[in-house]
Simulated scan of single mutants.
Amino acid sequence: MIIDTIHHKRDHQYPYGETIRRALDYVMNLNTADMRSTVEFEGKNMYVMKQRPMTKLFEEQLAEAHACYADIHLVLEGEEWQGFASSSDLNYAVEDKLKQSDYILFEHVENEGRIRLLPGDFTVYWPGEIHRPNCHPAGSVNLVKLVVKIHRDLL
């Protein structure tokens, strides 16, 4: 997992790796106001989605993980809280669609940490890392964000 701000990207890019740097460079130059909901920039291997979710309380939002894709979550507008956790035999999966749709959902995860993201902040979750996006302690809050999906073959 990486947490950083896009404003410091140039200072901190050395640990990201080439693919993450390429993805961040692409979204930094993207006209997000006029973009379609999904834009492929390296085919199905790397694409970006513009999302406008209403946040939920942590207790209402399921955690997730992916086997094939890494995620970059970049907040454009609003405030997002995310949960993150390590794999554990005590995590409780409620839906496993890894083979069909590359996601598994968890109702409960052990030792979950939380982080607050403001506009310009981003996180990177590698394949297999559990994360709970689109949360806010106040419940429903408007959020605008980009989610970049990067296939593991590029990592």
Results as ranks from 00 to 15, higher is better:
H8R: 15
H12T: 14
Q13Y: 01
Q13G: 02
Y14C: 03
Y16C: 03
R21K: 12
A23N: 06
D25T: 12
M28Y: 12
M28N: 15
N29Q: 14
L30S: 05
T32G: 07
T32N: 08
D34F: 06
M35D: 07
M35E: 11
R36C: 09
E40W: 08
E40G: 05
G43N: 06
K44F: 04
M46W: 05
M49L: 12
Q51P: 03
R52M: 14
R52T: 14
P53F: 10
M54C: 12
K56N: 11
L57F: 15
F58V: 13
E60L: 03
Q61T: 12
H66E: 01
C68V: 10
Y69N: 12
L74F: 08
V75I: 15
E79Y: 10
W81I: 01
W81H: 07
A85W: 02
S86L: 04
D89M: 04
E95K: 12
K97Q: 13
K97E: 08
Q100V: 14
Y103K: 01
L105E: 00
V109K: 00
V109F: 01
N111Q: 02
E112A: 12
I115Q: 01
R116P: 01
P119N: 03
G120D: 09
T123V: 06
T123G: 00
V124W: 02
P127W: 07
G128D: 03
